[in-house]
Design a protein around this nucleic acid. Structure first.
Lengths: 243, 243
DNA sequence: CCCCTACTGCGTATTAGATACGCTAAATAG
DNA sequence: CTATTTAGCGTATCTAATACGCAGTAGGGG
């Protein structure tokens, strides 16, 4: 079993000799998460994390193999456990509930979506979310393999949407003028002969108003999600012949 | 207009005095892309790019403001222009064609999906893709605003799927054993009382075979895409009452 | 009860990378 | 022809990851 997976599940072997550790990998992960919450992912350096814990930089390396491993631990630890699905709801209600839960959980850590993806989900929290989404599909009659495909697709969409909206929001707070000028900038650069469809959008004034993120992102998220779920509904009907 | 947008469109002001530049921002961008293609995004440092161009590191800063700006330029330059959509096809055929084109274009640069997203599309190549997808929806009767929402959602899904599959593929080549053991690792860690739906998936043996990426990713991509398009079809019918 | 040894904390040093600063030289406007 | 603008680049600084080895700690076997 990979070392990082063992760490996330708390399966390290019991210590025997030597001094008591003054730190655990969980402490380090928690401190890194707090630091990222407060100052962004860019502020997470081994030195800053150690400082926050009152230890030296190199002490951390006794507990995590590398910074990359720390990032993997953060990927799991930053997610809370999902709320259990309401009893007896249909798959669509269940997945909508699930997606809203993912959105809520990830919103608490704006840096979450810029973490590198290191592999398929393996930590306890990630697997709990995975299980929860699979559970929502329990009554559909899909094969287990199809359920996995559907949930992977859904996770991809949700993560992508979150990443996009968080990155745009970050760019927006960094440099609001660039966004308020977006429509005007495009207008100066788009040639209607070259990009006619885009020119029509500009003419219609879609980008004229300032893009506001906090309000629009929920609506966009839900819009795309409902499209996906509409498609899933058609797929389930096609495959199983029942609702 | 932001400086990077002007650079991408070649709108820098004409030079007058001083020595002829031996480099342009495009040269630098091209060299950076070649380097990333050959050795990955991690190998792209200002020093390595300069070395490849036979210039000193600091010379690059006369042409790009920072490495971040260089990454933005790469985001646009790495995409080729889209093939024009076939004439007279319906929106669904058009978007399927478009998505396949995106996939093809991005596959040529495996690092593409790990570039940070800096803002809404603004470069000539990105906008050409944007225009192409909007054009596919021209006959649907959707409002311009709805088209933008649909295309944004689609881009999000496509980018997310690509990012996920490329990151997993990278993890796979780094460490193939972790992947072949994935099912076995999960089996050791998943408690059927805690994660019953996931346990059923494991029992069904879904993760028992080695995950192969090159073949499966196309199928997964298409599966999710068709779900989204099924949903879009329902949406279009609902909104416009026509096909 | 003691000492061997595995283990922790950490100081130091190395390496890599981004980028500020200022010098020198090349073009060109006037 | 000369003042001005700009390119290339050497040097230096700053940040960060992390290899290495020392010193002190504590449990277990004698």
């Amino acid at each position: 079993m990979p070392a990082d997976v063992a760490l996330m599940w708390g399966l390290r072997d019991e210590r025997r000799r030597g001094p008591k550790p003054s730190l655990t990998a969980e402490d380090i992960t928690r401190a890194a998460i707090e630091l990222a919450d407060a100052e962004g992912l860019g502020a997470v350096s081994m030195a800053r994390v150690a400082e926050r814990l009152g230890n030296s930089t190199m002490a951390l390396y006794r507990h995590v193999k590398s910074k990359d491993e720390l990032l993997v631990l953060m990927t799991d630890a930053a997610l809370e456990r999902p709320e259990p699905l309401p009893e007896g709801v249909d798959w669509r209600t269940g997945l909508t509930f699930w997606a809203a839960g993912v959105l809520t959980a990830v919103r608490k850590h704006r840096w979450y979506a810029s973490l590198p993806i290191s592999g398929p989900p393996a930590g306890p929290n990630n697997l709990a979310w995975f299980d929860s989404a699979l559970g929502a599909l329990a009554g559909t009659g899909l094969t287990e393999e199809a359920k996995v495909g559907v949930v992977m697709g859904l996770m991809t969409y949700v993560q992508g949407e979150i990443r996009l909206s968080l990155d745009l929001a970050a760019g927006f707070t960094d440099n609001p003028e660039a966004f308020s000028r977006y429509g005007a900038t495009l207008a100066r650069v788009v040639d209607p002969r070259q990009l006619p469809a885009l020119a029509r959008v500009l003419e219609a004034g879609v980008f004229d108003e300032n893009i506001s993120f906090d309000e629009s992102s929920d609506a966009d998220f839900d819009f795309g999600l409902q499209l996906y779920l509409d498609g899933l509904s058609a797929f389930i009907t096609r495959v199983t012949g029942e609702q």
